[in-house]
Design a protein around this nucleic acid. Structure first.
Length: 560
RNA sequence: UGGGGCGUCGCCAAGCGGCAAGGCAACGGGUUUUGAUCCCGUCAUUCGGAGGUUCGAAUCCUCCCGCCCCAGCCA
C-alpha cells in the first residue's frame, strides 16, 4: 500500500504552527525533548514518542534533546542508558548536542528548593508515608494540613540541608510544596519535592542522598534546556497545573509548556515495563532483544526495519484519545517497507528431495534471477542441479486435488520451478512412515524464461534450492507472543495468554548460496514464505541463521 | 463519588453550522514465473443516547450513558 498522501493529524504540530503564526516563536527556536527514565528498554510506545518529538523538531527546523529523567536511583541503571541511546540512533535520529541528564541539574534544583522555602512555599514534613497519605484525604474529602506545614524558614532550610547531608533515615522526612490541601486535583495537595534515598546513582554516584521527585524536576529540566513544547502522555495532564506552578514560582530561564497526547497501544501486545521485565526475568523470552518482544531492541532483531517503524508511527495521528491500534496496521507498514526494499531469494524451510532424472549428475547450470521484481537490484546466481529440495508442503500425491485449490506439484502433473524449468513429477519413494522421501521428476526442455509447449499447463510456481549448491541454515519462525488481543486486561495473569508456539526453530533448512554471505541484519523476502533477516548476532557464513520477520500476506489459505 | 481526558465504519481516525476524508481490516474483480506486489471496485442516510436552538447540527445548548487517568516519599 502506498503511504497516505495526507499527513496524519497532529494537534501539537498545529499548536506549534499557531505559535509561529502568532509570532511567539521562530521555527528554529522550537525545542522538544525525549525524556526516558533509564529503568528499562524502550518499546513501540516510546518509538511513537521519539517520532513525535524528533519528528516535530525536524519538520520545523528546531532541535530535540535526549534527556534521561534519572531522578530515582532505585530503578535506574547504566545498561538502560546505553540501550536507549542505541535505540534512538538506530531509529535514525540525532539529538541536539550532548545527551542530557536530569541529574546534571541537581545542584540547581537544590537551590530552587531553598528558594521555595524562603518564599514560604515549601516545608520539610516529618510525617511517615502512611500518615501523609491519610492526611492527604480522598477525592471527595479535602486533606488536612501537615502539623509541620508552618515551620520557620530557618528550620526548613536547616532540616533540608541535614536531609541532604544524610543525617536522617530514608522515609523519615520529605520536602513538600505548600500549595492547597483541599484541591480537587490530588497532585496539588502539598506534593513531595525531595525524598531521602541513600543509594548510589548511576550518574552521580553517592553525591546525593536526597532526590527530586518527577514533578519537582521535569518542568525545571525543560526550562533549563530551553524546551518550548514539552510533549508527554495523557496521564500527566493532571500534573500540568503543578508543572506550571513550579515554573511560575521559580526564577527559571525559560517558560516551556506541556502538551499531552494519547500513548500508543497495540493489540496482542503488552508494553508495561513491569510486564516486559517479567517476561525476561521469568524466562518466557530469551532476553530484552528477543524477536518476540515489542522492545525496540526486539523489533530490530526480528527484522522490523527502523524505516517501517517510523512510517508506522508517522502515519498515526497524534491526538488526545487513547485507543488501541491493530497490530495488523503495524504489520502492514512492515510489509510495505520490506516489499520495496528487501531483495528476493529462495529458501526451503522443510525440505523434500527432488531428483531431476533427465538432468546430468554433477552438472551445474548457473541460472540467474533478478534480486527484485520491480526495483533495480541486479541479478543473483541460481545454480540448478540434478538434486533439489522443495518444501514438503508443495508436493502432493493426491491427484484429485483441483488446480485451483492446489497450485503446486502433484504426482503426474507439471509445476514451474521459480526462475527455472517446468518439471513433472513421475514417481515417489517413501520413508518408513510412509511419507514421501524423494520425488523423481523430469524437466521440460527450453522452459527457462519460456512458456512450455502447448498442452503443458503448470499448476503453479514453487520455490526450490539446489541440494548440492545450496547451503544449510537455521531458520527461526516467530508468531505473535500472545493469543489474546488484550493480554493484560482481565483478572487472570497475562502470562496465561502466551502463545505456546510463538517460536519454532527449523534446523534443516536450505538457502540459496548467496544468502550465506548476507550481512547480519540484512532483510530478504524468501519467496512464497515471507520476510526474513540475518540474525544480528548469530548469523555467519559458516552457520547461517535467519529470523522470520513476518509472513507474506495470505488471502487464500483460510478460504481454500 | 471530586478532578482531568475521551466517545464518528470491525480498528486508528478527519471533520470546528451547510449536506460523513483517509489508512488498516474485510469483500468482489483484473494483471502476475512469488496463492506476494500492483491495479480497479464495494464497504457509516449516519456521528454514545435523549431533548432543544436553527432553513440546516457529528459540529451550538441541556440532561443522561459509557470508557480511561489521578489518592507513590514511581515516572
Amino acid at each position: 500500500m502506498s503511504k497516505p498522501e495526507t499527513q496524519a493529524t497532529n494537534f501539537v504540530r498545529d499548536v506549534i504552527a499557531a505559535d509561529i503564526a502568532a509570532g511567539k516563536l521562530k521555527p528554529e527556536e522550537l525545542v522538544t525533548r525525549f525524556p526516558p527514565e533509564p529503568n528499562g528498554y524502550l518499546h513501540v510506545g516510546h518509538a511513537k514518542s521519539i517520532c513525535v518529538n524528533f519528528g516535530l523538531a525536524e519538520q520545523f527546523g528546531g532541535r530535540c534533546n535526549l534527556r534521561f529523567d534519572d531522578t530515582n536511583p532505585a530503578k535506574e541503571e547504566q545498561e538502560y542508558v546505553d540501550a536507549i541511546k542505541e535505540d534512538v540512533r538506530w531509529l535514525g535520529f540525532q539529538w541536539a548536542g550532548d545527551v542530557r541528564f536530569a541529574s546534571d541539574y541537581f545542584d540547581q534544583f537544590y537551590e530552587w528548593a531553598q528558594h521555595l522555602i524562603r518564599k514560604g512555599l515549601a516545608y520539610v514534613c516529618d510525617l511517615s508515608a502512611e500518615q501523609a497519605s491519610e492526611y492527604r484525604g480522598w477525592a471527595t474529602k479535602p486533606g488536612r494540613p501537615s502539623p509541620f506545614r508552618e515551620r520557620s524558614v530557618e528550620e526548613n532550610l536547616d532540616l533540608l540541608e541535614r536531609m541532604k547531608n544524610g543525617e536522617f533515615d530514608e522515609g523519615s522526612r520529605v520536602l513538600r510544596a505548600k500549595i492547597d490541601m483541599a484541591s480537587p486535583n490530588m497532585n496539588l495537595r502539598d506534593p513531595t519535592l525531595y525524598r531521602i534515598r541513600k543509594q548510589a546513582h548511576h550518574h552521580t554516584g553517592d553525591k546525593w542522598c536526597i532526590y527530586p521527585s518527577y514533578d519537582f524536576a521535569h518542568g525545571q529540566e525543560d526550562a533549563i534546556e530551553g524546551v518550548t513544547h514539552s510533549i508527554c502522555t495523557l496521564e500527566f495532564a493532571d500534573h500540568r497545573p503543578l508543572y506550571d506552578w513550579f515554573l511560575e514560582h521559580l526564577p527559571v530561564p525559560s517558560r516551556p509548556h506541556q502538551y499531552e497526547f494519547g500513548r500508543l497501544n497495540l493489540d496482542y501486545t503488552v508494553t508495561s515495563k513491569r510486564k516486559l521485565k517479567r517476561l525476561v526475568d521469568e524466562g518466557h523470552v530469551d532476553g530484552w532483544d528477543d524477536p518476540r518482544m515489542p522492545t525496540i531492541h526486539g523489533m530490530r532483531r526480528r527484522g522490523f526495519t527502523a524505516r517501517a517503524i517510523r512510517n508506522f508511527c508517522d502515519a498515526l495521528p497524534v491526538a488526545k484519545s487513547d485507543g488501541v491500534v491493530s497490530i495488523a496496521q503495524f504489520e502492514s507498514a512492515v510489509r510495505d517497507d520490506l516489499d520495496k526494499h528487501a531483495p528476493r531469494a529462495m529458501a526451503v524451510l522443510n525440505p523434500l528431495k527432488l531428483v531431476i532424472e533427465n538432468f546430468a549428475e554433477g552438472e551445474v547450470e548457473n541460472l540467474s534471477a533478478p534480486r527484485h521484481p520491480k526495483e533495480d537490484m541486479g541479478e543473483r546466481r541460481l545454480p540448478f542441479t540434478r538434486e533439489l529440495v522443495i518444501d514438503v508442503e508443495d508436493f502432493s500425491e493426491d491427484t484429485s486435488l483441483s488446480r485451483k485449490k492446489f497450485k503446486r506439484l502433484v504426482l503426474g502433473d507439471y509445476v514451474r520451478l521459480r526462475g527455472a524449468y517446468v518439471i513433472k513429477a513421475n514417481r515417489v519413494e517413501h520413508d518408513a512412515d510412509g511419507k514421501p522421501s524423494t520425488v523423481f521428476c523430469e524437466l521440460v526442455e527450453n522452459t527457462v524464461g519460456e512458456n512450455p509447449p502447448e498442452g503443458i499447463k503448470p499448476r503453479g510456481v514453487i520455490h526450490w534450492v539446489s541440494l548440492s549448491e545450496g547451503r544449510k541454515a537455521t531458520i527461526r519462525k516467530y508468531d505473535r507472543l500472545f493469543l489474546s488481543p488484550s493480554p493484560d486486561k482481565g483478572e487472570e495473569d497475562f502470562l496465561t495468554h502466551i502463545n505456546p508456539t510463538c517460536k519454532t526453530v527449523l534446523e534443516d533448512c536450505w538457502i540459496e548460496p548467496e544468502l550465506a554471505d548476507a550481512a547480519p541484519e540484512s532483510s530478504f523476502q524468501f519467496e512464497r514464505e515471507g520476510y526474513f533477516v540475518a540474525d544480528r548476532f548469530d548469523h555467519s557464513p559458516e552457520n547461517p541463521v535467519f529470523n522470520m520477520t513476518i509472513g507474506l500476506r495470505d488471502n487464500w489459505s483460510d478460504k481454500a
